[in-house]
Design a protein around this nucleic acid. Structure first.
Lengths: 198, 198
DNA sequence: CGAATTGTTGACCGTACCGTCCAGAACACC
DNA sequence: GGTGTTCTGGACGGTACGGTCAACAATTCG
């Protein structure tokens, strides 16, 4: 009996995500969101609730997509160590530097909102723990494959790798030269992944 | 001939800094700043200009104080490597975790504003380059003192250490357990600072 | 004491904010 | 075709926003 939706929820979430990503949460107005989504006020509020709820949904979907992508890359990587390296080096992959300047929506949001919004902080913990688990798995595989020192504690290395990646993300946001950024990622990786004694 | 100021500029800058630090730039209103500074509107605008100018001044003074502190610690450290270790471990120093949750004003601001404000991005580049230089000096001293592999390229290690510290700062902001955060810092340091072959 | 200069206060302006609400439109089912 | 249900668009309200301004206060110098 009901009237059907005229819009695709996923498209709206993506459009809204980009707005939050580029401007930050507080600096993005509801008018901005209406503009980029193309919806009217009643539709947006009816389908997603207020600004805060919409943002949290966008953030969760962003994180979930991100985790799915990492698991896929782990599954398809030739070697476990490749996935770990790509995780860090990928931050500086775009030669124009645009992706690095944009950074990560989760990292940006955590920095902006963690103090005032426990939900965002909790989401960040959830996401980073999941990433750590994936990296740990990748590193354990790398140990079996002989690419990483089997005596290292994989979970500990995973956390250090995550920290390094987050640092590279933070540096990328400053707009520093992409070549230098790549060098930072490369040198951090070289030291964090202990090579097996031959 | 003029009427003297009734307030201390430095106190105002510190109070305003705390407001921006805790709430972020966009979420802090001019009314908030008037409240925490205790000034009237005319005084604040007369002495510091608009919100944006005031923020940039606060950020610059924060950075300068930060760099001064690092140089002092380098000067007073018993060994160069101690200063480097303290730089990373200090993030998780507060056992209550409050300092870690608060994070770094520069890192928070860069994540929130780098896209929309070139001034903030430039300030971040300036600050991180200066920190890299200080860390490089500390690491070169550590090499002379026999605490770090003399064959390592100090500037490269310095950049990796900075990335690791920024990563720990980012993780700290999520409110994760301080003990775990300390372990992350410790394990990253252990791998980033190549010990000299004995 | 008077003139000149700067600091202070808070009223005021126009705008933009977020969220609600309602009248009408579009469909499904009978 | 009628009825019930949801969706849509925009008008509307109350508030808070950043910033300006003018009147008044405090001081220094002549």
């Amino acid at each position: 009996m009901p009237r059907p939706r005229e819009f695709d929820e996923d498209r709206v979430v993506l459009a809204v995500r980009d707005a939050f990503w580029d401007q930050g949460y507080a600096a993005t107005s509801m008018d901005d969101l209406l503009r980029v989504s193309g919806l009217g006020k009643g539709s947006l509020y009816g389908a997603f609730g207020d600004k805060r709820r919409l943002f949290l949904r966008v953030l969760r979907e962003y994180d979930d997509a991100n985790l799915r992508g990492l698991r896929e890359r782990l599954g398809s990587a030739a070697r476990g160590v490749d996935m770990v390296r790509e995780f860090v080096l990928g931050v500086a992959d775009d030669p124009t530097g645009a992706a690095a300047r944009r950074g990560c929506l989760l990292a940006n949001s955590t920095a902006e909102l963690a103090t005032s919004s426990p939900d965002v902080a909790a989401e960040a913990r959830r996401s980073y723990e999941a990433i750590t688990a994936i990296l740990t798995e990748a590193l354990e595989r790398a140990q079996r494959e002989g690419d990483v020192d089997p005596d290292a504690y994989a979970a500990e290395v995973a956390r250090a790798v995550l920290a390094a990646q987050l640092g590279v993300v933070a540096l990328g946001r400053t707009g520093m030269d992409v070549a230098v950024l790549t060098e930072v990622a490369r040198s951090a990786l070289a030291r964090l992944l202990p090579a097996p004694s031959p």
